[in-house]
Write a protein that binds this DNA or RNA. Structure first.
Lengths: 130, 130
DNA sequence: AACAAAATTAGTAACGATTACTATTTTAGT
DNA sequence: ACTAAAATAGTAATCGTTACTAATTTTGTT
């Protein structure tokens, strides 16, 4: 299926590119609705999935039950706060070396790994959100 | 709340201890029902959550939309097959060293990390499941 | 500019995993 | 046996997400 332009998709991607907090579909919806009040939640989900499938954005599954999205597709890691649920970028050297270690004791083909960090973010540590 | 014995909880934990494939709540339910046909799905979920909260079992979130459970609480890693969805243990040296690297460029408190591997399991690689 | 085929949408229904609720039953200490 | 606390079965509700459908938009062609 050839991709056709859609104003909604553009709004969604632009919104995501202006954010660094890895919003959920619901948050994208709430915000994009301010520029296009008629947009539907299904359209947001469909376009986020489409953009992620095309590699234009990243879908993050951080174990909190809802997917987060990131327009920054450069390799980097993520941190999720167990207190407030916020997601933050975490720049560090890639640890792809662990794949070699993993392959040593494993029969199947290991294509990649998912790693993320958790704990208490700076704001919550300082009691700002309490 | 003091914990009281329950036959259902014992069945659930025993079933889990006899498996190495990290079953989902649904699979635990189907199997335990053969020994106790009256057990309800809610009881399975409640007890899996309770056991996980007490640290007697491990809850695995591997991004496939459903939680898996593991009675082996010793430190080890997991692999999930993108073809058949199976989950397998993966023994390798702990990579807690990455926490130090992560902490260097991060303000908050990093308590731990989640890492899992994905790819094609040995069976799927050999076309056994196809 | 009008035409048509394909893609996209809004709106709503459906879905799967999980949690919440409630009346009844079980456990365990007296 | 008596009782309070905990647990259960069964069901309803919730949440995030996907599927469906008729109407609209895009885009290439006349």
């Amino acid at each position: 299926m050839a991709l056709k332009y859609s104003r909604q998709r553009e709004l969604i991607k632009n919104f995501l590119m202006g954010r660094r907090d890895h919003p959920t579909a619901e948050i994208v919806y709430k915000n994009v609705r301010q520029q296009n009040p008629n947009i539907s939640l299904g359209t947001v989900y469909r376009n986020l999935t489409l953009l992620a499938d095309r590699g234009e954005i990243q879908r993050l599954r951080l174990g909190d039950g809802t997917d987060h999205f990131d327009a920054d597709i450069s390799p980097h890691y993520h941190f999720i706060c167990r207190e407030c649920g916020c997601v933050q970028d975490l720049r560090m050297d890639a640890i792809d070396g662990i794949l070699d270690g993993a392959r040593q004791h494993f029969d199947g083909q290991i294509a990649g790994h998912i790693t993320y960090f958790y704990g208490t973010c700076a704001q919550c540590s300082q009691g700002i959100n309490s």
